[in-house]
Design a protein around this nucleic acid. Sequence first.
DNA 1: TTTGCTATTCCACTAGAATGGATGAAAATA
DNA 2: TATTTTCATCCATTCTAGTGGAATAGCAAA
Lengths: 263, 263
Amino acid sequence: MDENIVSKTLTEFPVRQRQTGLDRTLQVLDALTEHEKPMSAYRIARAIGAPSSTIYRTVEEMLKHGLLSRSSKRDLWLGPRLMRYGLLYRIKLDFFSEARKEMEHLWQKTGETIQICGRDEGMMVVLAMIEGKGHFRVTSNVGTRVPLNWTASGKLLLGHLPEQQARELFLSYAQPSPTGRAETDPDLLAKQAKADFATGLSIQKSDSEYSVACIAAPIRDRDNTCRATISIVLSEQQLDKKETNLTAAVRESAAAIEARIRY
Amino acid sequence: MDENIVSKTLTEFPVRQRQTGLDRTLQVLDALTEHEKPMSAYRIARAIGAPSSTIYRTVEEMLKHGLLSRSSKRDLWLGPRLMRYGLLYRIKLDFFSEARKEMEHLWQKTGETIQICGRDEGMMVVLAMIEGKGHFRVTSNVGTRVPLNWTASGKLLLGHLPEQQARELFLSYAQPSPTGRAETDPDLLAKQAKADFATGLSIQKSDSEYSVACIAAPIRDRDNTCRATISIVLSEQQLDKKETNLTAAVRESAAAIEARIRY
DNA sequence: TTTGCTATTCCACTAGAATGGATGAAAATA
DNA sequence: TATTTTCATCCATTCTAGTGGAATAGCAAA
């Protein structure tokens, strides 16, 4: 054995932290969600850079628990048990039933698409939606996840955080949008987030999709943290026509939900 | 050391299986979902009969990963990360987008509430819903979970399994429904499930809620396993009026979805 | 006050999990 | 066909993380 090799490996891969079982489990799930289609255990192992022996055992255990399912002989995919917690989490959010009622109210008033969005780390998640009455259709579905910097709601969802923290999240998660018009500079984004949150309103035009606009207001709890947002999604032309009416309506809805969840 | 003591402890506490981290993690999540509201770490430990030292550490790790969140100083609740997998699982079901289109079609045709339901172990889960045009409102929300024996869809979702297996699932999960009219006998349920699945249709009246009826058809894949169901939920009076039309419509929709997911 | 339950942290012990290989079979590629 | 890549299982070694207690508060009822 050549000592050089030993010392080299020691310095180049210094102390590869040993992972916990939960770490590996979540890595497997993340690998699958990122890849967006079934993968074999071997592929998963390669994707997350883990020893295949570890992954084979982890996968076995996850299958037993219903966290994974076999979509073919080799290929693995997310398991049905994942719904249990995810969907329940959503329903049991303390503001959720209140928010739903107010969504419908806002929908009756405006006829446009209404969304409730929440945050998971650096991504915005669509929690609930009512589609607009018109022919204008938004493709996003409940569960859709987009980077926080793409949407008006996304910025609001970070508005309550200290600017430094918001900046770090934007730094790790901000992505260029398909239209290329979404801001990606963490400093600027953090400032905007803070300002919009303070105003209690955020408006955005074509940042994520062409001719799609969005008016969002934060839903804050007693601690003034932004728990979620309520927003109207509509075409840019529509927005230009009746902006003042709609902003007022969104503000009112957010206020109504806040009033109820704060008792 | 007295040998008697040793042998005694060995026989009285034989081999308490040591749990894996994933086991404990899921137990914590299950404890919270069953309790349906936040709990302290200590309470969780008692609820699942685990050493509190284990749970405190597990909880700590789960918090770090966003699987749990603190709802107050002591109390813990499900974390936002759970949405990630749960909602994504639903969206990425290969039949989901096809099913949604067909749901809308069926809704246009009938004007009634349309649901797509799936199975998680012994429970039926509402995966998607469009509410009916009339004033008749169903309280169930997307994500709602009810025992398989309460609904027409529930039975279909087990119809492809060997009768023995279906019986076991009904045995562990069947519950009396609020109306008391849902069948609870595992043998009978398994037989019904098989028969309904063979027919490709299941109809139910007031089993789970008074004056609520349901017409469901299975969505089967190439292997003839029941992946999901599509159903019309309506009032019993409505059902009686136009049963034949509606059953035909549900059947057609299920067939349309199947045709597309089988290529 | 005492008593009893809830809540939290510490510690020694060790079962068993993660690791990093190695070894072949199967499948894909040339 | 030969060759490479993918897949799957095995093993010895390392050391994490589950276990069962004990210790310590805090709090409420008796």
